[in-house]
Design a protein around this nucleic acid. Structure first.
Lengths: 142, 142
DNA sequence: GTGATTGCAAAGCGTTTGCACCGTA
DNA sequence: TACGGTGCAAACGCTTTGCAATCAC
C-alpha cells in the first residue's frame, strides 16, 4: 500500500518511463487523482489541481486522465448516475466498494464467482470473458 | 416468460394504467425496445421504431424511454464504453450477461453474494445497500 | 533547438427544453 | 374540447479538436 505522495511519484515515473514529459500542469493533475480516495469527475480534478496550478486548463485534465487510463494507473468508475469519474487503479483483479454519499472508494477481492460463472456459461451458451462486481453503500464517515 | 408481442402489450397497458396516452409514436418506441433482446441506445431505438412510424422524432424516443424507466419496464445497461443503452427489465433482483460483440443481453440469478457482502461490510465499515454484477462475453450466435 | 504540451476558442455530439401544432381520451 | 403528446429548432453541457504560443528535454 502506497502513501498518497508515493503514488504520485510512481505515476509520474510511469509517465516519464513511457516517454511523456513532466510538466507542472501534468503534475498537478496526477497529484489530484493520486491523492484522492474518492472517484472524481474531470471538473472535480480540475478544481482540485488548480489549487496547485491555477492556470490549468480543463483540456489538460482530459488529456492527462486519458494517458493515466492508458497506462492503467486510473480506472473509470461506473455509477447509476455518472460514469465519467476516475479513481486510482490497483494491481490485479479487484472490485469496487463505493460510498453513494461521498464517492469514497475502496477495493476488495475474493469474489469467488468461479462456480457461478461456470454455471451461467453452461446455461447460456455464452463464453464469458470478464465480469464487473460493484458494491454500493455508505462509508463509515458518512 | 412473455413473447415479444405480449411484452409490448403489457408495457402499453402499464403506460395506460399510469394515465399516459397511447399514441402511434409511443407504441412504435415501446415495440422497438420490448421486442429486442439487445441493449439499444436511443439512436438505435429511433432507427428501429421509425420502420413502424417514419415521422418519429428522436425527442419522443427520449421521452418515452424516460417513462419506461420510471415504471421499471426498462433498465439502463452499463458497459465499458457506453452507459446509455436500454433493455427490457425483469421482475426481482437479477443480473446481466452481455455479449460484447452484438449487445445481446440475458438475465441470470443466484449470485450467492451474501457471505461476501457480509465480509466486505465488516472489513470496510461501509453499510452496503446494493450491488451490481455483470458478466461480459460472447454469445452463442457470435 | 525541437517536438511534445499547453490553453484558448471553436467545433462536435448526445441530450434536454421551448413552443406551436396535433390527436387521444 | 381539453390537455397530454409531438416534432422542430434552439439551447445546453460535456468532451474533443485546431492552432499558435510555450516549455521540457
Amino acid at each position: 500500500m502506497l502513501t498518497h505522495a508515493e503514488r504520485t511519484e510512481t505515476w509520474l515515473a510511469a509517465l516519464r518511463g513511457h516517454g511523456y514529459r513532466l510538466t507542472a500542469p501534468r503534475q498537478a493533475v496526477v497529484a489530484a487523482v493520486a491523492e484522492s480516495d474518492r472517484a472524481l469527475i474531470p471538473a472535480e480534478v480540475h478544481d482540485q489541481a488548480r489549487r496547485a496550478y491555477p492556470r490549468l486548463g480543463l483540456v489538460t485534465v482530459y488529456r492527462t486522465l486519458e494517458k493515466l487510463e492508458e497506462l492503467h494507473l486510473v480506472q473509470r468508475v461506473h455509477r447509476p448516475d455518472n460514469c465519467q469519474a476516475f479513481v486510482a487503479g490497483v494491481e490485479g483483479h479487484q472490485h469496487l466498494l463505493i460510498c453513494q454519499k461521498c464517492g469514497r472508494v475502496q477495493y476488495f477481492s475474493g469474489d469467488q464467482l468461479g462456480a457461478l460463472i461456470q454455471r451461467v456459461q453452461a446455461d447460456s451458451g455464452y463464453e464469458i470473458h470478464d465480469h464487473w462486481l460493484q458494491l454500493f453503500g455508505e462509508c463509515g464517515e458518512c
